[in-house]
């Protein structure tokens, strides 16, 4: 991994974007990395476009907001449009095809059917955020599966821990298939 990795998670309010960012941050700390995490706050987090920024560093993080994202994890078309211009050249975009139809840009795209998978397995789209985290874990290798699992176990709302761990595993599987396909 590079010295500083800038990650944006985005979607609309209610998708659990902020929680996913926070869990990624907890996992980053477990990984021994420096972490900064800034989120949408207040009414914003409850509706319209919602984002979480996570910076992972092998050294101390001077400026704690994302300036250009190396990785975008995106769960709504609106958020995709909003944050595409801030992507680093050659950056990676993990998108959910249920919500996002990407254009042709010089980035690496991974379509992760997170919402569909969540609906099929849990009968609710809610765990899509964690499915995406699973895919992120598998595709980037920045955070180990063990640390991501522990972060969820320790910090997700207790009554959803089991569902979230299952969602994480599903995301990892989906990413493995994506990797196989590409």
């Amino acid at each position: 991994m590079r010295e500083i990795t800038q990650i944006r998670l985005a979607g609309f309010g209610g998708q659990g974007i902020v929680l996913a960012g926070m869990l990624l941050g907890f996992a980053g700390v477990r990984e021994g990395l420096e972490v900064a995490n800034a989120n949408s706050y207040g009414a914003q987090a409850r509706g319209s476009a919602c984002k979480a920024e996570v910076i992972l560093g092998r050294k101390s993080i001077v400026f704690p907001h994302v300036l250009t994202s190396d990785i975008l994890i995106v769960l709504s078309q609106e958020a995709y449009k909003l944050f595409l211009p801030d992507m680093a050249d050659g950056g990676t975009i993990l998108f959910d095809p249920y919500h996002v139809t990407p254009g042709k840009t010089p980035h690496t795209f991974h379509g992760i059917p997170a919402t569909q998978t969540a609906l099929k397995t849990f009968r609710t789209p809610q765990p899509a955020n964690i499915v995406m985290l699973g895919a992120f874990t598998e595709l980037t290798g920045i955070i180990s599966e063990a640390n991501m699992t522990a972060a969820i176990r320790e910090n997700a709302p207790p009554r959803f821990v089991d569902a979230n761990l299952k969602a994480l595993a599903l995301g990892i599987d989906l990413a493995k298939k994506t990797k196989g396909a590409s």
């Binding site: 980053g28 972490v35 900064a36 800034a38 989120n39």
Partner: peptide, 10 residues
Amino acid sequence: EEATAHLRES
């Protein structure tokens, strides 16, 4: 400041 109060960091 709000920006630091709501920021999460290691």
